[in-house]
Structures are given as C-alpha cells and as structure tokens.
Design a protein around this nucleic acid. Structure first.
Lengths: 193, 193
DNA sequence: GGCAATTTATGATGCAGATCATACTTTATA
DNA sequence: TATAAAGTATGATCTGCATCATAAATTGCC
C-alpha cells in the first residue's frame, strides 16, 4: 500500500493534534496528504458558520488531490478529528507516483470514482428524501464493511453535518430506528446488528 | 480530442432519439459512452418517482466510467434530452485508451476531479443553503463559461431537478432574481447579463 | 397556421424539520 | 475522583418550501 512505499522511500511524517487544521479554503494546493495514522474530516462552512462534512478520511487514505491536479484553490477545510500523522507529498512527487508507480494511476481513478458514488448517493438523498430515509442510507453506508456488533465512531452531530439535518432531528431518528430494531444503542453509541 | 480519435479509428456511432434511455440503474456496465453530438442527462429516481439530475453531458464529453471501472451496477439513468450520437467504447478498449493514449489517464483524473468539485458544491448547497442561494449558485455555475447575453439551455424544471427544489419555487426565485437585475429574462429564457 | 404539449406563472394552504430552551449522560482531563 | 466538556435527550413553537389548484405563455409539430 502506498503509505508503506512512502515511508520506505523516506518521505517525512508530520504530526497534527486533534482539532488542528491541515488546509483551509482558498489556499493554493501544494501537496497531497497521505494519512499514516489518525482521522481527518473534510468540511465546507457556509456564511452562517454551518458545517457540512464532505468526507472523512482514515489511515492509509489520502486527500487533497482534486484541487492540486486542477490547480484550483481548496473549497474545504481539512481538520484532524484526533491526533494524526500525515505524509505530505508535493505535486511533482505525486505526479511521479502517477507516472512511475505501477497501477497507482488506476487506483487513483477508482478512488475518485468511489467518492463520486458516495456524493451522488448523498445528493440524491439530500435532494429528494426525508430525514429518516437519509439517516438510514447514511448509517448503512457507514456500516457497509463493518461486522455485526461493531459501533459507529461517529457522533449524532457528525451524522447531522453529513446529512444536512440538525442534531436534534438526528437524535430523534436514531432513537426511532433503535426502537424499530434497525440498529442497537449501547451507551448512546450506534451499534450494527 | 478523443471523439475525433475514436472516429478516425473506426469506432461505431449509435443514434438515440430524444427521450431514449442509454442505460438504467442496476444494469451491469459494458461501455463508456462518448458523445459525438447531442445532449444527455444523468438522473436518479427515487421511490416516489422524483428525479434528481446528477449531471448533464454535452458533445465531446463522456459518461459511465466510474461504474465500469469499479465493476458496480449503475445507480442512474442516462437519457438523451435531444437527438444524440454516441460512440460506445467497450471496457477493454477503454482500458487500452487509458494505457496507450498519451495523457488520457491524466485527463480522466481531471474530469473526475471536476465532477467531484461540482458535486461537493451542490452537496454544500443542498445541505445548508436556502432556495434562493441554491439557484444563484447553480445558475452562476451553469453560466461559468458563457458570454454575456447567452441564454440557459435549461428549463425551470431541470433547475428544480438539479437543486432539490420544486418547479414552482424555482419559477418564483428566477422571477425575483430577474426583478433584482441579477439575470435577464427573454421569452421566459434565463439570459446572462 | 392551428392545435397539442410543454413550460412558465400565481395564489392558498399544510407540514416536516428547524429553532429554542432546558436537562440529563457519558467521556475526557486535571 | 471531581468537575468540566462534549454528547445525547425531549418538549414547544415557528417557518420556508412543498403541495395543490388553476391558468397563461411559449414551443413543437402535422
């Protein structure tokens, strides 16, 4: 996997504390960010200060390529949601990865395609579906690769910020889904059944 | 441009009448579709039959690669919104384009990145912004490369289906924007000023 | 050029989810 | 092991846009 390759080739690791900003809107992209460990959220913030979570990135994933490759300023903030180690790969080096690293370019195309699938799904939900349907779809997407009994590492507020709803609404719906046995709650955490 | 290359290499052209369906949800992808002439909309339809327009594709553009490259069934319908000529490129041939055609792979990555930008922008709008803001953003995006005086080739219904609003709402807002001199109306068509 | 279909227009009413307020529970941290 | 902070919970009220109804203007087409 690419992070291992980068470490073997002496790329440097940068540490970010929980809450630290990696980049913000309007900045000119300088690198692609590979996550060695930790967790990062990508959020856009509107004029009223409301956040929308565009995506959540975990260890071994990377982010920030679209803006870099299009030479456009970032639209979003990326923020470490826990202590995180990141390997920044500068543009020329990233382009070299695409050229040289066998299969990397196809992998990147598939990564972008997966993100498009997710965004298409959410657009459809936000455009046409009621609150309950949105949360059902979102939770089942987030549980996609999870085992039975596993718990969501995501708060109600984050579900709200991903679905365009308010926390109170998400809380009410999650309770309802639990009462209908669609999910289980343990100490407030959503658990897959 | 790639369509020219395909025509020179004897790829076959298929014709679709206005309203004809090119592919539909759950179908297994067989090809990538290059548009020689015409116009195609990509729409998802929910259980109540409400449409959401995921994208609109014009001559020289192509669609359908993400599902093909991920080996996933389509999520959306693609429908010719006028008489359209299409060059279907089968998977092996498309993979060959990526491998062989110099620069094609990077172009594809940029195309996917642009679609991600659009979807991120619209997600933010649908999640957090009021109707008027959504329509402003959408219209200015659609007019991005247009000259002053050019008219939108898009109906109120289509704006509604792209923004998650109802036609009536879009009509009221478009009238308001016109009255505020943000756009001009000529025989009902939205014109850039 | 005339008729049908599509698109635009406008008013009246209803409702899902936002907003506001207030409290309880779980988790972090000093 | 306190105590603060973050997250979950619940009720009451308010509102932007959907929905419904009905008509006028524009476009397509034989």
């Amino acid at each position: 996997m690419t992070v291992k390759y980068l470490l073997e080739n002496n790329f440097k690791v940068t540490s970010y504390k929980k809450g630290e900003v990696i980049y913000e809107p309007d900045m000119h992209p300088k690198a692609v960010y590979f996550i060695k460990s930790g967790r990062v959220k990508m959020v856009t913030v509107n004029d009223d200060g409301k956040e929308f979570i565009q995506g959540i990135f975990k260890a071994s994933e990377y982010f920030g390529e679209p803006a870099l490759l299009l030479n456009k300023p970032y639209l979003a903030y990326t923020i470490a949601t826990q202590d995180t180690e990141i390997i920044p790969v500068r543009k020329e080096e990233f382009l070299k990865l695409i050229e040289d690293l066998k299969g990397f370019s196809m992998k990147l195309i598939q990564t972008l395609s997966n993100r498009l699938f997710y965004k298409s799904m959410m657009l459809e939900e936000l455009a046409n579906e009621q609150a309950e349907h949105r949360i059902r779809t979102l939770i089942s997407y987030l549980f996609k690769d999870a085992a039975q009994g596993e718990e969501l590492k995501i708060t109600r507020q984050q579900l709200a910020d991903m679905s365009g709803l308010r926390v109170e609404t998400v809380i009410r719906i999650v309770k309802k889904l639990a009462s209908q046995q669609e999910i289980k709650l343990m100490k407030g955490k959503v658990v897959k059944l």
